[in-house]
Simulated scan of single mutants.
Amino acid sequence: MAAEKGRGATLNGESRRFALPERQIDGDWLDMAEAIDGALPRLRTQVTVEHPRTIIARNSSPDIAFSQSINAYRGCEHGCIYCFARPTHAYLDLSPGLDFESKLFAKPDAAALLRRELGKRNYVVSPIAMGTNTDPYQPIEKDWRITRQVLEVLAETRHPTFITTKSDRILHDIDLLSDLARDNLVAVMISVTTLDPKVARTLEPRAAHPEKRLAAIARLAAAGVPVSANMSPIIPAINDHEIESVVARVAAAGARDISYILVRLPHEVAPLFRAWLDEHHPDRAAKVMAIIRDLRSGRDNDPNFGSRMKGQGVWADLIRTRFVKARRKAGLGGEKLALRTDLFRPPAGAQMRLL
């Protein structure tokens, strides 16, 4: 399959984890369509409305710093080839490849569901994370504004939240973020994977330009919003040579700190990533995968808590040492930000909870 312009994945095969067919039974016409009719039309983004019963997801993972999260969307138009959330589309009988970045699901009831859940008598306040699975500020947020609506509920109830994104679209909500920041109720993390626009164009094709992300860090910091950065993921022989420059640039932009995650290739992400390497970096594809396997105890992926984010072995130690030195040189780090939970007030009319 030829690479689709403006998309990350070069494949769109069905997942085999659930015994789904490699292709649809009636899909053979696609093999001949281009020869008969000429070039196929460009892939368009489709959005389907989803009506879940609840909106707050909960986890107990020991290496994740939050227990509650909200995902306004399923799938992500940014098309990041490395995205560890891609396999979730297999549960919908869709491909973790191009389907994940072009067949999206929006949850317009998110704010109403959140209001209902926050109003429950037994609700326990804990920071809600957004952007942990798919980006809350991906391009379709411009029209759907679901993340904005969720933020409005969080601001109204004075509820703490963490937000992770690789889009400068977050600046559209700087009024709400500034309001929350005044009471120490929000922290933002901007993902800066690379400073090279040529790499970004294939690695994360519909995400914001690296310079726009740096500008977003500067704007948020100037507005008093606590903002940090995340170099996620670090991919050996693709962007690891940029560690020092990325750390220096985010520090200069006003980030309070920076963290990193090594590339993860769970389930269908591994073959998608290998196909991406063959398409865009055939000269070093074997080298990249060899280093990744060295980081992951001889496998494409390590699912174990503790080691899955940072890796193991000589390469992992080298990357960790470089990152720590670069961070120290840039003057980043210090006291960890703890968001307040004592200001929470239930939504208006929430079962007379205060009585």
Rank of each mutant, 00 (worst) to 15 (best):
A348Q: 14
A187V: 10
A253D: 06
L203F: 11
Q46P: 03
Q46R: 15
E101P: 09
S178G: 13
K166C: 09
A19S: 14
G224W: 04
G254T: 03
T202W: 08
L20Q: 04
T45M: 05
L332V: 08
L114A: 07
T202L: 10
D278K: 14
I55L: 06
I258R: 01
P282E: 08
R353Q: 14
D240P: 05
A33L: 13
P108L: 07
A9Q: 12
D135C: 12
M1I: 13
S67W: 05
F323K: 01
R115P: 00
P62Y: 15
P139C: 05
T132Y: 06
L265K: 01
I36P: 06
A286R: 14
K5P: 05
K120R: 15
L355H: 11
I234E: 00
A316N: 11
I291A: 05
R219T: 12
E101S: 08
S232Q: 02
E268A: 07
E117N: 06
N59S: 12
A326V: 09
G6C: 11
L277M: 10
E204Y: 04
S95Y: 04
S61G: 13
N304L: 06
E34D: 15
Q138S: 06
A290C: 08
I238Q: 06
L176D: 03
R58S: 07
D240Y: 07
T147A: 03
K198Y: 09
G131L: 01
A222P: 11
